[in-house]
């Protein structure tokens, strides 16, 4: 897979800040919890995501992994705890502000803009990194031309790097499932995130596709981005993550480097349902 050239982290916002919750971590969660009525989907989760690493979240279905993503990205408001991103307390912020600060995500089942074609899906995500006003765009003056050209160039670059450039003029519904996921990743990268959250990116992919995606994730990290990953495919997780957090019934049951988590009795129990 080609190197990702477009969509480097936004200038001036790179580098971790020393937040109140742990110096050196890009994302820091403390006591995070979410109730849906009577259901406690997530409770008392603490997590430090160091920069330029791959951190994975694993756990059985319904463990609360997606809910955690929704809380971090501002899609849902937590009922307890705090989220610090780049040292800023972003708890309860609206999703678009958090994205503007340098965070982007993909969804468990891709949510594309179905009435925009593939490349336009990516261009639409440039909104947050462009500034030209409607009047400038209508008259084709000022920043608008340069910004538009740059957005198109970056979009093409990103489509190449996730290898769906040949689909650029198609509508999303014409794409095979795996390519929809790739498009979502390209779209997220177009917002120039420092931290990218991927919710089960290899679901529905054949092993060779999954391997390509791992390579892509590696390039992202090499380019200075940080990845937080939800993943079911244990081969992927073990191969690619620097550290792993395990959730079960909304609670953190283990945390650490892959080799250590693999041995953890509680994890084996959660996954295999055996008394270890």
């Amino acid at each position: 897979m080609a190197a990702v050239e477009g969509g480097a982290p936004a200038p001036g916002v790179s580098g971790p800040a020393d937040g109140p919750n742990g110096a050196g971590s890009l994302l820091a969660l403390a006591g995070l919890g979410k109730r849906f009525g009577g259901l406690e989907a997530l409770a008392d989760v603490a997590l430090e995501v160091p920069p330029r690493q791959v951190t994975a979240i694993i756990g059985p279905n319904g463990a609360g992994k997606t809910t955690l993503f929704n809380l971090v990205t501002g899609d849902l408001k937590p009922t307890a705890g705090t989220v610090h991103f780049k040292g800023v307390d972003v708890t309860g912020w609206e999703a678009h502000r958090i994205c503007a600060l340098g965070m982007a995500r993909t969804f468990q089942s891709p949510r594309l803009f179905e009435n925009l074609n593939v490349i336009e899906n990516v261009i639409a995500a440039r909104f947050v990194r462009t500034r030209s006003s409607l009047v400038e765009s209508l008259l084709g003056v000022g920043r608008s031309r340069a910004e538009h050209a740059r957005s198109v160039a970056m979009a093409e670059e990103l489509l190449r790097s996730v290898e769906i450039w040949h689909h650029r003029g198609h509508m999303p519904k014409e794409l095979p499932y795996g390519d929809r996921r790739r498009l979502e990743i390209a779209r997220a990268l177009a917002t120039e995130p420092e931290l990218i959250l991927m919710d089960e990116p290899t679901a529905g992919m054949i092993p060779s596709e999954a391997a390509e995606l791992m390579a892509l994730i590696r390039t992202l990290v090499d380019d200075g981005r940080t990845v937080l990953l939800i993943e079911h495919n244990m081969n992927v997780v073990m191969a690619i993550s620097d550290s792993i957090m395990v959730l079960n019934f909304g609670r953190k049951i283990a945390e650490g480097p892959p080799a250590q988590v693999q041995q953890d009795a509680k994890v084996l129990e959660a996954y295999l349902g055996v008394e270890a």
Binding site: E94, H96, R111, L112, F113, L116, A124, A125, A190
Partner: peptide
């Protein structure tokens, strides 16, 4: 229009 939730996640107000 197509997906407000995804739009917000992509930084659109």
């Amino acid at each position: 229009r197509d997906d407000p939730r995804a739009a917000a996640a992509m930084g659109i107000n």
